[in-house]
Amino acid sequence: MNTAPTLVVGLGCQRGCDVDTLLNLFNAALDAEGIARQRVIALASIDRKRDEPGLLALATVLALPLQFFSAEQLAVYEARLSHKSLIAHAHTGCYGIAESAALALAERMAQAPASLLITRQKNAQATFALACAD
């Protein structure tokens, strides 16, 4: 049986980042790669953002589940990141939230190795990455 690949978006953001900023980044990154928004099946971030209104609103707007991972769970993906942020590490204990969270959730959902289909994209307040697992 040939099933569609698991596509998962990882997100990081500053405190108070609004839903429109996140949605604009989400749409721009997918549009640039010609990937339909409907192919994304879930969102992921770090557990420190569990109560972030913009992220929660984005999940509602997109009607997608949003899952969170601890810094320890995300740290294991460090060697696979396209960009390592010293600022992110200083604040969270991991070098890249968007990419790590996307990889972690794609692998959990697909029970298979994942790779980054879209590496870290950013705007002034947020980061985005898309992971794929078959």
Results as ranks from 00 to 15, higher is better:
L43F: 04
L43K: 00
L43E: 01
L43D: 00
L43W: 01
L43P: 00
L43I: 05
L43R: 01
A44W: 02
A44K: 03
A44R: 02
A44G: 06
A44T: 10
A44E: 02
S45V: 04
S45D: 08
S45Q: 07
S45G: 10
S45R: 03
I46C: 01
I46G: 00
I46D: 00
I46V: 07
I46S: 00
D47M: 04
D47S: 13
D47V: 05
D47Y: 04
D47F: 04
R48W: 03
R48I: 09
R48T: 09
R48E: 06
R48D: 04
K49G: 01
K49F: 03
K49Q: 06
R50F: 12
R50E: 13
R50G: 06
R50V: 13
D51V: 08
D51K: 13
D51M: 09
D51T: 14
E52V: 05
E52G: 08
P53Y: 13
P53S: 10
P53V: 12
P53L: 11
P53H: 12
G54L: 02
G54H: 02
G54W: 01
L55W: 02
L55H: 02
L55Y: 02
L55C: 05
L55R: 02
L56Y: 09
L56E: 08
L56R: 12
L56D: 08
L56P: 06
L56N: 13
L56H: 08
A57K: 12
A57L: 14
L58R: 02
L58C: 05
L58K: 03
L58P: 00
A59E: 03
A59P: 01
A59Q: 03
A59D: 05
A59V: 06
A59C: 07
A59H: 03
A59F: 03
A59G: 08
A59T: 06
A59M: 05
T60A: 15
T60Y: 08
T60W: 06
T60I: 06
V61F: 07
V61H: 15
V61I: 12
V61N: 07
V61G: 02
L62I: 09
L62E: 05
L62Q: 12
L62C: 10
A63K: 13
A63E: 14
A63S: 15
A63H: 14
L64F: 01
L64A: 01
P65M: 10
P65E: 13
P65S: 11
P65A: 11
L66A: 11
L66P: 07
L66S: 09
L66Y: 11
Q67T: 14
Q67I: 06
Q67V: 12
Q67F: 13
Q67D: 15
F68Q: 12
F68G: 10
F68N: 11
F68Y: 15
F69A: 09
F69L: 11
F69T: 07
F69N: 04
F69W: 15
F69R: 06
S70R: 09
A71Y: 02
A71F: 04
A71W: 01
A71C: 07
E72Q: 15
E72V: 13
E72R: 12
E72H: 13
E72T: 14
E72P: 03
E72L: 10
Q73E: 15
Q73L: 08
Q73D: 15
Q73F: 09
L74S: 05
L74A: 07
L74K: 04
L74N: 03
L74I: 10
L74E: 02
L74C: 09
L74Q: 04
A75Y: 04
A75E: 14
A75Q: 15
A75K: 11
A75W: 03
A75I: 10
V76Q: 14
V76L: 12
V76R: 13
